[in-house]
Design a protein around this nucleic acid. Structure first.
Lengths: 241, 241
DNA sequence: GTTATATAGTTGTCTATACCAATTTTCACT
DNA sequence: AGTGAAAATTGGTATAGACAACTATATAAC
């Protein structure tokens, strides 16, 4: 059930076990799970440890509590929740598609005025990337990315070939991604967009601008993606405040 | 500072006090707050109680923790956060625009197949609304809404003239809105869309479909909005999971 | 000066217990 | 059968302590 000797924390193992029991149908949606005291006996841990596991699951909306009544299994969420900030690669993977890149340009340059303002830069260089993004071998989007050189002095072309930029940040650096503001608009393909996307001029395109911020509050990227509207829809789950 | 005799929980009072200290500038963004042990002495509570307060604030992204280093004040959020599920009226208001409606159609009817499936209906009627949405007097979007009659048997044309549907749900009924899945795509205006929006055929339009769900997990609306892309951009804040 | 090494400080995990507040169940009384 | 009080059960709050894992700093060795 759970392993006291495991390097994984007990509360985490308990979370996974409860999730398993929900998947197996032992705990049903809308019905109560055993009480915290009962679970603490089953797992042979203190009640506070069970509470920590349950609290995490409540935060993730898998369970909800009612004082004096018990803890209940929430109605199933979207089969596959589509939340949060994701890179193109991550987005494609969760759609079941296989992403790949064609790097058209990679250089250091002075940012244009808009980019400089959005990234809070003063006379600093940015990396500029222009890429064609493919999904299952078909062109899906053209993407321009601006990244302040100061934040990631070691970036190379090779890194962008080998891994997702977000993956790089989260595994190879000690900073972390916090949030992003995305602006989505519809447009008409000019020659500049139509050609790399292999569509007609005058076709509809979906343009997404994303400004990404680190936990420190510092903006770390401006990303402008132009998607083929016949192949791509932007899907996201939101919650009522 | 905090009051042991207060009926408010200690951890809640501590949260409020830390927020106050951040507002007053005693704790600065990006810098560490005192350690949990230090705070537990200051407030004369156990460390676990301080941890509970801090954990809540971390969940709300006001603070972030780094193991072995400390707990830090997060950079201020967007001045005006653009999160969550909102109705057209709410969306316009937070953009500083004044919304108004033109109701083209309001009737009960059998849902088409797609709508029936999305709303999980079997041989049940829906309300069908078609509206032109204005912002500061200018046409902004045409909107079609499908709502199962069973969920809101008392709906009338008058209600939609007087208030926002979301406001109605939250103030006049005992159910509440939980979440929504939005699908955004770009398209080209046909005559049907161009005319009510007062744009040319062939212009770009932004189409947003929203399926809304109640806390019980039951879908309560399908909303299809077609926006003028020259006047409207979809803006949203997202967080990294 | 540079490099290991110890040390002190931080959050992370966990225990065992206690009492409170809200709800459900039990059961005696009518 | 119905009513109402008491008891049991549940999650909510809080304590006091312990050790682990990680980080930064001071110290000793080279």
């Amino acid at each position: 059930m759970v392993d006291k000797e495991s390097p994984l924390p007990m509360y985490y193992q308990i979370e996974e076990d409860i999730k398993k029991r929900i998947d197996e149908g032992l705990f049903e949606a809308g019905k109560p799970i055993p009480s915290e005291r009962e679970l603490s006996e089953q797992y042979e841990v203190s009640r506070m440890t069970v509470r920590q596991a349950i609290s995490n699951m409540v935060r993730n909306r898998l369970l909800y509590r009612e004082k004096g009544r018990g803890t209940f299994v929430a109605e199933k969420k979207f089969e596959q929740p589509l939340e949060g900030v994701t890179s193109f690669s991550e987005d494609m993977k969760r759609r079941g598609l296989s992403p790949h890149n064609e790097l058209l340009l990679f250089e250091k340059r002075k940012p244009d005025e808009t980019t400089g303002e959005l990234l809070g830069l003063e006379a600093e260089d940015v990396y500029y990337l222009k890429r064609i993004r493919y999904a299952d071998g078909e062109p899906m989007a053209v993407e321009e990315t601006f990244i302040p050189v100061r934040l990631f002095p070691e970036l190379t072309e090779k890194i962008f070939e080998e891994m997702s930029f977000y993956e790089y940040i989260e595994t190879k650096t000690d900073v972390s991604i916090h949030r992003a503001r995305q602006t989505i608009e519809a447009g008409i393909a000019e020659k500049e967009e139509a050609e790399p996307l292999a569509i007609e001029e005058g076709a509809a395109i979906l343009q997404i601008e994303r400004i990404g911020y680190l936990t420190t509050g510092v903006p770390f990227e401006r990303n402008i993606s132009t998607y083929r509207s016949d192949r791509y829809k932007f899907i996201s789950d939101m919650y009522r405040n």
